[in-house]
Nucleic acid binder design. Structure first.
Lengths: 210, 210
DNA sequence: CCTACCGATCGGTAGG
DNA sequence: CCTACCGATCGGTAGG
């Protein structure tokens, strides 16, 4: 029979991940020392190493945990079986909310995954690709001609660009908040989608998603 | 009388900056050592320090040089006195071209400026703000109601999001290249702009541009 | 312009 | 014999 962990073990792990994500996001992964992480958590460094094998393990848990939650959101929305436009609008709304609640993890995902061993990078990238595919699928239902031209992923990535970039410039202390931005992004995207022209023989096989 | 620099001095500096920008963009600023930069340039570390005072000086020259070129592009296009839509379309086209020619510097600008002393960060950020203002001005001419609602900068930032993010995913070895993306972004943006609704009492004073 | 170093700090782990 | 931790310090390497 498996021995039980101390009761606070998982809570402590989550607390460490949250503090590490904040430090990595603000100062960068390489420039953040394990000692800084430990101090921010009120722990000694050996205690920190009790919860995580090494520095990379922190980064993997932060980035992969975030992207798996995103994949879960996509699955939930798809399961609701909404028409393509409502589905995509709901995806935008939920992603903006999720990003707002996990800004540090999101920044780590987009900026620090390159520091991981290739196997970890690849696994996270594959999950990102599945997320993008969920968005691209809806784009293809709205513009089947883009689907045939293999441009739906490009459009999905332009949409991700608007959303992801938002978290580099919007400081929602003012009157404009994330809740205002989601419909703005959706209106801009759905308004503009019919205006996008086909380009000569495009293929998107060589894109790196998210 | 000022002593003349060796004739190849400026060329050597530019060469070092290009190699350093590539390393910083691929591996991250903090994770790149000055010794790696020196080796990549075929120089000894002391020779590298002959051209640049310290590691930060490399970063400042790369990031500030890039953003000043962008500011120059904005000034050129404004001087052409085109109507707002053509002006913005030309800005998009030129920015995508400039980014494609300076991808490494662009990545350094968007990811590594946070490692600089605050004074340098602030100066670079001010230039970025001027660039964004050039885009936002054109948006305001197309949608004066957004101007009154202080939303033109938010729209300009969504546009920057699409363009900036492009360079994280598009690998233009395939059929789809940067030249194809500029009109796609422009069509999406101009098609969607009329569909954007006003949101309750928004203000953009607290945004961090670029 | 090189070899040879410095003060400090890195990620990770020893003994108890 | 387990877990959860501490004070101290390891071998290497960073920027300069």
């Amino acid at each position: 029979m498996a021995r039980k962990r101390a009761p606070g073990y998982e809570n402590q792990r989550e607390h460490i991940l949250a503090r590490a994500a904040e430090l990595f996001a603000l100062r960068g992964y390489s420039a953040t020392s394990m000692n800084e992480v430990a101090v921010a958590c009120g722990l000694s460094k050996p205690t920190l190493y009790h919860y995580f094998r090494d520095k990379d393990a922190l980064l993997v848990d932060i980035a992969e945990g975030h992207v798996l939650r995103l994949q879960g959101l996509v699955a939930e929305v798809i399961a609701a079986e909404l028409p393509a436009q409502e589905r995509l609008r709901e995806l935008i709304r939920r992603f903006v909310t999720e990003y707002a609640n996990a800004q540090h993890a999101h920044r780590v995902l987009t900026e620090d995954v390159k520091f991981l061993p290739l196997a970890d990078q690849q696994r996270i990238l594959d999950t990102e690709r599945a997320v993008v595919a969920g968005f691209a699928q809806a784009v293809g239902e709205l513009r089947p001609d883009l689907e045939r031209a293999a441009l739906t992923k490009a459009l999905a990535m332009l949409l991700f660009g608007m959303i992801n970039w938002m978290f580099t410039w919007l400081r929602p202390k003012g009157a404009l908040g994330y809740d205002d931005m989601a419909p703005m992004v959706a209106d801009l995207f759905f308004g503009g989608l019919p205006a996008v022209k086909l380009v000569a023989g495009a293929s998107m096989e060589n894109a790196q998603p998210e």
